[in-house]
């Protein structure tokens, strides 16, 4: 009947989809994370939730300002390593994803020049470094572990990632997902770890950065993406502080 209108609608469809997605995310946050935050049983605790959420965003900015890219986390000796290292995930140990290393390919997306997937042997051919550092869990406990792999900075440079972008995100085989700020991603102790004590800690690829709490160290990574749109995370979307720096 009115073709021009149909044409124009088709033109803005991607934008509409984006707006819808944003709205959905926002609602998810306000209904999910916000109502969980205060723990109040009051019906009208929206104001308290909003205040706590705003303070958490403020604390993100304070922590980003406090982050010194040259400050290295303390390192320890082999003798200090905690054994057995605690297993911690949002599911039980028996439910870890089993991934075949031969077929494994690391996918790349977002603001990356070379999106070619990476096999494990290709990742192992890159320069490796190791660290013995303390992992601090958001629950309060800590444990010292050893991790070895590729510096994330080196990898991001290698794939032609936009290093001026704001976020690096991780999608995992266990349906976990998280994201970190670019300065933390470029920190010299931030590793894409290939070697660690046991497969249950994230085989074949996990993130290890001692400058953030344990839950920011994604395990069983299947995809890495670079973006300027806030990607959130599994626990972050439920109300945990996003930056969670150490």
């Amino acid at each position: 009947m009115k073709p021009p209108r149909l044409v124009s609608l088709r033109g803005v469809r991607p934008q509409i989809a984006r707006i819808e997605r944003r709205l959905f995310l926002k609602q998810g946050l306000s209904l999910g994370a916000l109502s969980l935050l205060s723990g109040c049983t009051l019906k009208d605790d929206d104001a308290v939730d909003r205040l706590l959420f705003a303070m958490s965003r403020f604390n993100d900015r304070v922590q980003a300002a406090l982050f010194d890219p040259a400050q290295l986390a303390p390192t320890y000796s082999e003798a200090d390593v905690t054994t057995p290292f605690p297993f911690n995930a949002y599911y039980e140990e028996k439910d870890i994803p089993r991934i075949d290393g031969e077929d494994y390919r690391l996918r790349l997306s977002g603001l990356v020049a070379d999106k070619r997937p990476w096999s494990l042997s290709e990742l192992r051919a890159l320069p490796q470094s190791s660290q013995i550092t303390r992992l601090v869990c958001v629950e309060g406990w800590s444990a010292i572990g050893k991790w070895r792999g590729v510096a994330l900075r080196h990898f991001l440079e290698r794939i032609g990632a936009d290093l001026t972008a704001r976020y690096v995100g991780f999608k995992c085989a266990d349906k976990y997902y998280s994201s970190i700020d670019m300065p933390s991603a470029l920190h010299p102790q931030t590793l894409l770890a290939l070697d660690f004590t046991d497969a249950k800690y994230g085989y074949p690829l996990r993130l290890r950065l001692p400058t953030k709490l344990g839950f920011k160290n994604s395990k069983f990574i299947g995809e890495i993406f670079v973006t300027n749109d806030y990607p959130g995370g599994y626990w972050e979307d439920k109300g945990y502080n996003w930056f969670s720096g150490s």
């Binding site: 969980l36 205060s38 723990g39 959420f53 303070m55 958001v138 439920k238």
Partner: peptide, 9 residues
């Protein structure tokens, strides 16, 4: 109410 809420407070 739970850990995330307590940390936020």
């Amino acid at each position: 109410g739970w850990l995330a809420g307590a940390l936020a407070w």
